[in-house]
Amino acid sequence: MNTKKIKLQIKKLAKEFDLKYNPKWFNYMWISKREEILTEYIGDCPDPIYIKYGRTINERIKNIDKFVNSKDFKKCIKRYGGQVTHKKNWKKEEKLFKKIKNIELRIELLRLHDKIKQRFEKIDCLALMTKTKIKKEYDWLMKYCLRHEWIHILLNKNKIHFQDINKKYWPYDEGLNEYLAMFLEKKLHRLEEFRKKEKYPMEHKNWVYAIKFRSLLKNAKTPKERKQEILNLMKRLK
Rank of each mutant, 00 (worst) to 15 (best):
K74Y: 05
L96I: 08
W30L: 08
I42T: 06
Q163N: 00
H86C: 06
L188F: 12
I61Q: 06
K167R: 00
V84A: 07
S215V: 11
K7F: 03
C45E: 07
L184R: 02
H161W: 05
F26H: 09
N102Y: 06
K78F: 00
L141Y: 06
N158P: 12
K87Y: 10
K227S: 01
E225I: 02
V84H: 06
M142N: 12
K88R: 13
S32E: 01
F183H: 14
D65F: 06
R55F: 11
N166H: 10
K88C: 04
Y209P: 08
K235L: 07
N58Y: 12
K157D: 01
N177T: 14
I123F: 12
L180C: 08
F26C: 10
L231H: 07
I6S: 03
H152S: 11
L180V: 12
K218R: 15
K221W: 08
L109I: 05
T130V: 01
C145I: 15
S32V: 00
K88L: 09
D114C: 08
K7P: 04
I165E: 10
K75A: 01
K224S: 07
K117L: 15
E149Y: 04
H189P: 09
T56F: 04
E40T: 01
P223G: 09
I153D: 08
I160M: 12
T130K: 00
K52R: 03
K122E: 15
K78E: 05
L233Y: 08
E40D: 13
